[in-house]
């Protein structure tokens, strides 16, 4: 498996009088990995996303995407490999209608018109917004706007998709649908997904989670490992997943649970055994 994103001792700050937003961050992400980046507000998650796409230039350190170190010259080439869906869909809508907006990135890359139409149709059907293609952004709900923003990035067929809290305005069903679509797409195209999120269930879907706090990586590993941090998670601005909340409640009521991490099935199994031993 090849390395897709590599950050080497990256430091960044917006204001030199204040402490660094990213402190000596080193990180490598493989091609085809789904990584969730979690952390409290102000931990540098969004900044990290912008540094990866070359929208912000680090003070020191280097960023390497798909084998190419990010420089002034190759920045546009690298940007065509990385797609970002930002937080506030209202502010990233460029087009006057849904289909215009999805086509915007394709226009920038001087795609032929027939190819553009094909891509736009496909992308809008992925996110279930094809029927809304002639609508104006002001008439869409927050969730619908996020779907369109996602379609705009998908149409470009990037190698890396970064979701900067891009599902925060969707209802639970819509979020599940979008994430499921993304998962299918990832399997089809060996896509690398970086999702920045406060949603613990979204983090649980990832292959790997990275916990960021004050610009430093506190935890890097499988989601199970993150969840076994237990009540400490709340300090990092995260909720416990439902299953872990249940475990905390069980322990409080005097039921012993094993040290190792249990997922939902594991817990059910364990409780069965416990019950039949009585």
């Amino acid at each position: 498996m090849s390395l897709m994103i590599q950050l080497d001792h990256v430091k960044f700050t917006y204001d030199s009088a204040k402490p660094l937003i990213l402190k000596d961050l080193s990180l490598s992400i493989n091609e085809g990995e789904w990584v969730a980046i979690v952390g409290p507000n102000g931990s540098g998650k969004s900044t990290l996303a912008k540094v990866i796409d070359g929208l912000l230039t680090p003070l020191s350190g280097s960023v390497t995407i798909d084998g190419n170190s990010l420089t002034e010259e190759n920045i546009w080439e690298i940007r065509s490999k990385v797609g970002i869906v930002f937080q506030n869909p209202d502010n990233q809508f460029v087009g006057t209608t849904v289909e215009d907006d999805v086509a915007f990135g394709l226009e920038n890359q001087a795609f032929e018109r027939s190819l553009m139409q094909e891509r736009v149709e496909k992308a809008l059907k992925w996110v279930n917004m094809w029927d809304f293609r002639h609508h104006e952004p002001a008439r869409l709900s927050g969730g619908q706007k996020q779907r369109v923003a996602l379609a705009g990035v998908m149409a470009l067929a990037p190698k890396v998709i970064i979701l900067d809290e891009a599902t925060s305005m969707l209802d639970p069903l819509g979020r599940r649908e979008v994430l499921e679509t993304l998962r299918q797409l990832k399997a089809e195209k060996d896509l690398t997904v970086l999702s920045i999120t406060h949603d613990i269930d979204e983090a649980a879907l990832a292959d790997r989670t990275i916990l960021l706090k004050d610009g430093e990586i506190i935890f890097d590993g499988q989601p199970e490992g993150l969840f076994s941090l237990g009540s400490k998670l709340e300090e990092y601005g995260l909720d416990l997943p439902y299953i872990d909340q249940l475990k905390v409640a069980l322990v409080k009521r005097g039921i012993d649970l094993p040290e190792s991490y249990l997922d939902q099935e594991g817990l059910v199994e364990y409780l069965w055994k416990l019950h039949s031993r009585k």
Binding site: V82, G83, V94, G105, V153
Partner: peptide, 11 residues
């Protein structure tokens, strides 16, 4: 925000 989003989409 819009300028950043446009730049990220290759404009």
């Amino acid at each position: 925000d819009l300028a950043i989003a446009m730049e990220a989409r290759g404009y």
